[in-house]
Design a protein around this nucleic acid. Structure first.
Lengths: 192, 192
DNA sequence: GCTTTCCTAAGACGGTCGTCATAGTCAAGG
DNA sequence: CCTTGACTATGACGACCGTCTTAGGAAAGC
């Protein structure tokens, strides 16, 4: 069916636009109407593709954000020999993306997580799954390296530093905190 | 004037309630009406005390949040001998406060920062000032200790780890990430 | 051809938002 | 007492929100 392709495209454009806008402006400030307008998708089919309303769209957008970050992490560990290099590469990519978006972006899930962490059970669960997936992936990748002794702690430290640095870098519109975080984590990894 | 006391109280209750609600639910999800209702202050005097509207209230609430955190940091360094102990104490207090609020709280500025970092210049500046003030305070306190070699980097690492850990701890409704961050920072400080 | 199914157009619904104007209360200063 | 100024009660304003309904269109299967 050719309509299936069109359907998928419309649906995916909505999800992709939702991820971008939720990342930049948050969940509350992003309205259905503006989102659909920006995506260039028909407003009439919003509730066709997402009968669960804005909440369902958000869950889908969170799923996309989870996958995008996971892909970046996997690529980081593929293209680099050591863990330090992989993490530094990841942090640098995050900083470049942040700057390229004029410091409007950052973590695709941080804003909606803080906004909705207790307002919507469905969104809360999606965010929990996302962070858990990232953590599990990191632990897995770290475990492949033999000289990493405590992957759980290291993974948490890598995530904590990135999330915090993205927040600080964004508010100051400078990747300074992110650069410092990269150096910090590299130092810690080398010491361990 | 006795009315001055009443005024100040009304005004301060609004600011205090704003800080709490902005922290828990964010700026966008907190309406003037609910805020005033929760504060128990007269709705009629909202625009009397804050002619600049909700935005002006937010700036005041951010100022309060800045001061509250700064006070905690100062207390941490007063009550503890070493930097490690001070940071560990701070992190532990943050985790206790988060749990006591059923993981609705966290950093009083993180949510509004991510939400409004590009929507309102006034709020953006207030957030920048807040993070800058915390950083400066930390650098100052760290500089008093002779065996800390790079206070700027250490201060950034302390803030990054706390902010990131608060985010992750909140979404998982567990202070696990915060506990790990405390151990991580302690380890780093001891190594330096 | 017809029918069925998927998608879209258009707009109304009640509700809430931030903002503001007007009238009023009430304590303090002269 | 009376004026002045600070504070509050009340409610309206237009705008936008998320949601849902109804009807139309277009492609696929028979």
């Amino acid at each position: 069916m050719l309509s299936d392709v069109s359907d998928t495209t419309t649906r995916e454009r909505m999800i992709s636009t939702a991820m971008t806008l939720f990342r930049r402006e948050g969940y509350q400030a992003t309205s259905w109407r503006r989102l659909v307008e920006q995506a260039g998708t028909p407003w009439g089919s919003a509730y066709h593709h997402f009968p669960g309303g804005k909440e369902q769209l958000a869950v889908a957008a969170i799923g996309l954000g989870t996958a995008v970050v996971a892909k970046t992490v996997r690529r980081a560990f593929q293209r680099n020999e050591t863990v330090e290099d992989a993490v530094a590469w990841w942090y640098r990519k995050a900083g470049e993306a942040l700057a390229a978006d004029d410091y409007r972006g950052g973590c695709p899930l941080a804003t909606i997580t803080l906004e909705m962490a207790h307002a919507s059970p469905a969104i809360t669960k999606a965010c929990q799954d996302a962070f858990a997936a990232w953590h599990t992936l990191l632990v897995e990748l770290l475990s492949d390296v033999k000289d990493v002794k405590d992957p759980e702690d290291i993974a948490t430290a890598i995530m904590n530093n990135l999330e915090g640095a993205l927040l600080v870098s964004r508010v100051h519109r400078s990747s300074d905190a992110l650069d410092r975080a990269a150096r910090h984590v590299a130092l810690v990894l080398r010491a361990a």
